[in-house]
Amino acid sequence: MKHARSADADLVVRLLHSVADAVADGMSTTQRVVAGAIVGVFALTPFGAWDEVVTEPEPLVAGQEIEVGPFELTVVRAVVTDDIGFLTPQEGNRLLAVVVDVTNVSDRPEYGVLLAKIFPAPTGEGIAPRSSPFGESAGSEETTEEPRLPDPTILSAEDGTNLDSINPGISYRVALVWEQQLDQAQDEVTLDLAELTWIEEDTTFGMDDQRWFAYGEVLYRGPVTVEKGADR
């Protein structure tokens, strides 16, 4: 004699079978496959089938070499100072420089500003927002959203000159410089490094082929100790 429980299960199976029969009856094979796939996806819903894929960034460790896009990068340290090269901060601000060893390991030259795509301004660290030539901070008065943070200025840490391009096989010690509000200064700064994706053929309106592009996905994240004084 069958167990009561299995008899119940049997009934459910039989019921589902007859429902499936009734629905699938008269469907073509293609329709059945498609319907089956849809049912399958819905069946996975409680297990997170519709959840956004979230990739956790890897930990960023100062002194450790990593590869992003065409560059090998080593974040050396972060430094706060009052002037670097030709840069001086506005009153009440100071300069925050992230010092990075950079080597172009690809076989084509890149603009120095590509580094700004890898290193977006750290958020919540009091980076001074982009200022407009008209005095007030950028953006209209009504906007309540966070002001856009500026890209860093890319300098050679060695001599303070503007690093316009980085040729293949060449290494520089680079300073990525932001202006930081003095009252927000902390002993540590959390850096996000964005991933670069190679666009071989641009199918968007830009039609700008063969370049690195940052979609904004964070590849590495980690704290870097902020030192005071010396500028290299």
Binding site: D107, R108, P109, S156, D159, T161, N162, L163, D164, S165, N167, P168, G169
Partner: peptide, 15 residues
């Protein structure tokens, strides 16, 4: 090898 190297404006040079 066919690799390209760009001119720089550092040090007052002409690009």
């Amino acid at each position: 090898e066919g690799r390209s190297f760009w001119a720089t404006s550092r040090g007052g040079c002409a690009k």
